[in-house]
Design a protein around this nucleic acid. Sequence first.
RNA 1: GGGGGAUUAGCUCAGUUGGCUAGAGCGUUUGGCUGGCAGCCAAAAGGUCAUCGGUUCGACUCCGAUAUUCUCCA
Length: 870
Amino acid sequence: MKSQDIRTQFLKFFKSKDHSVVASAPMVIKDDPTLMFTNAGMNQFKEYFLGNGTPSDTRITDTQKCLRVSGKHNDLEEVGKDTYHHTMFEMLGNWSFGDYFKKEAITWAWELLTEVYKIDKEILYVSVFEGNEAEGLPLDKEAFDLWKQIVPDERIILGNKKDNFWEMGDQGPCGPSSEIHVDLRSAEEKAKMPGRDLVNQDHPLVVEIWNLVFIQFNRKADGSLEKLPQQHVDTGMGFERLCMVLQGVKSNYDTDVFTPLIKEIQNITSSTYGKDQETDIAIRVIADHVRAVAFAIADGQLPGSTGAGYVIRRILRRAIRYGFTFLNQKEPFVYKLVATLSKQMGEAFPELVSQKNLCENVIREEENSFLRTLDQGLVLLDEIIKESADKKVSGKKAFELYDTYGFPIDLTALILQEKGFSLDQEEFEKELQKQKDRSRNASKMISGDWQIVSDGETEGFVGYDSLEAEVKILRYRKTESKKEGELYQMVFDKTPFYPEGGGQVGDRGVLESTDGEVVYIIDTRKENNLIIHLAKSLPKNPSATFKAVVNVAQRARTAANHSATHLLHQGLRSVLGTHVEQKGSMVQSDYLRFDFSHFSKVSSEELQQIEHFVNKKISERLPLVENREMTYQEAINDGAIALFGEKYGDKVRAVKFGDSMELCGGTHVGNTADIWHFKIISEGAVASGIRRIEAITNEAAKEYFTGQTETFSELKAILKNAKDPVKAVVNLQEENAELKKQVESLLKDKAKNLKTELKYEIKEINGTNFLARKVDLDAGGIKDLSFQLGDEFENLFLLFATEQNGKALLSCYISKNLVEEKDLHAGKVVKELGKFIQGGGGGQPFYATAGGKNPDGIVEALKKAEEYLQ
RNA sequence: GGGGGAUUAGCUCAGUUGGCUAGAGCGUUUGGCUGGCAGCCAAAAGGUCAUCGGUUCGACUCCGAUAUUCUCCA
């Protein structure tokens, strides 16, 4: 069975069991501080498990693109070494939200595997949670009894808390799980050792394929468990592994999910898969990683140096590194695989097709820059090798190479090994740990349990229509971090405060109680669909009713910027073309920032046209038309612009100004006229194929123009109201350059004159040409003069003195031959003579300077100079 | 967000513990030689040593801040 069909069959099966099929959520997560990437099928439903939202359907099924780079079995550095771990993978799942529970979940899973996919029952094992005394949890008898009716006893395995009790994190929903494992070993192998002994033992051919989680508890901050009012089912089946089973191969990489990529890698790199272990690992690494990176970029996550972007960069660089070392790829090549990938998976994931060009460009650029880094690292490593005499390289040196110059440690180790050098790996790890601790401390956040003030569901955001509301606090908690200090997070029963999202900053404002107490809300954020208000303090009586008031001025300016962003987006598409797609957006009260796909610099003419386009829309006084109750499909059919990598609910909000229509949750002006004016203040690149425009509107634009006008008036005033100020400045610059040259040549003349003058003053003492006198030159001039005289006279001893800003300066020049013959040292001379001017100094044997604060001593110092030649 | 590094001629980079008027290669210009695929020889021009401040007799070099950039960690 082809992988395409395996996927379709799964969804079809659960559809027949009354599940509704939903699309995969984006791989990159935006509103959950504890998670960067979707790492399991349940992530997009987390809010339902937490009780922060209600699903449209109680039975749901999907295939979810997931990314794992860390965790108990998923160290990035291990991917590719075996045949069954991946960074990016698909998770097939079915869910029940307070609907069916263990019975249906177990029977259906078995039905699908054995009757639809027709997997031999003899190779399947199931596991059940054995209970845990410390937690006070008994054996999951319900699941055990259910399995007993289907599977013989010897195929049921009892699993411990580590394997069979699933938790979302330190806190939150959790419960026992039941896993289905498959034994793909040969009959011979099976005879040697029963499959049940290999379950959960990391055997490549005895693997878990499906995990059925029965969510029935909530883990609190103090570690205790609490029974949930509603019970849920959360299942996840690894798609690639399922394909392996159904296609009768022994490795995920031998399924048709990977074979097209592997074939292409062999083509491009002229290598062969299946002959040599190192080559095989490299090919697997590249095949796996290009998937992760391409999917992430298609979801709008570019490689970068922070957060999720950094993870993507690391994955891509690992692929490049393996290609570099084991497949001898010294030029970008990973990007060439995108075409194959998008052809192969584009049907199930259309974003891969529409974002193909961008993926290729971004990956190629990243490859180029990393290859440069590698080149530089190789040179540096060479130097380190040359410097280490005892064939040992310290961990500290290796760490510096890694930390500062980004040179991969395993490459360092490999090269050293080839040259017969050893590396102190332990010391390296120690340095790395130090760095990790530093970073962790800097971003540590402790959050307490939610304190429930009053029960009830929250209505959520009501701030589209009003900026004030009577609210009650539902719950609050205290958080502490180094960055922000102590903060209180509060959830209201409804709120006019817009939470940060869609690029728009969170609202600020106040919470007023009836007795006049005021608590400042410093930011509003969204976590798992819950709107959280941040404050430095808590009201005295949290159970009272408050008036929540949004900072009107800030909101108005932000709204102007957000609406302008939409017009800008439209303007860009109109001026540059419809290939322009939003790649990032930031809307603040003082400016807006918009990143978009476009492959060349936006010229100043184009920028002007774009500005003009937006300002025309502003002057057309277009009213805001919004529709909050559309379905996604209706909106798209109406021509609304939706964004890749954005998660949309069943009901979307469409925001329309004239012909501009976007799906958007942000706040906007009632009429484009409220934007006043739009001004682009910068344009530049953020990555290959991505440009960034920064712009201002409203009062900021006004201030900008006022400031510019003021500067210009001042400038004009300085230029005596010249008719053409630009020309006047150019003239000034030219004149200035001319004058500089003249001054320079005059100074040269002066020095020349002085030099000729001084030549006659030089007298001979004991065969040495000697001159000591005061001159009217600065330190540089004296030096210059000394060396010029030095060129013309042999056996020269010079002592110049000058007075500058009330300070005295001495300088001594001694011809090199004199230094040797007479054992003179200019440094010593100025140091000794420096006493007369109450100062000190030094320098080299042939030229030295000294400074002091007593110019009256100059005469004495000059007199004494002669003594050095006696 | 935290740490480390880098910033020197148009480009790629040297510059040892602060001190000889900041160098090289490529490129540019000029002159001469030469029938070639980086032609040869000679000469010249080109530098606020990222910016600002500090220490010092003296800072490209040391210290602090800023900007830009690379990189690791979270």
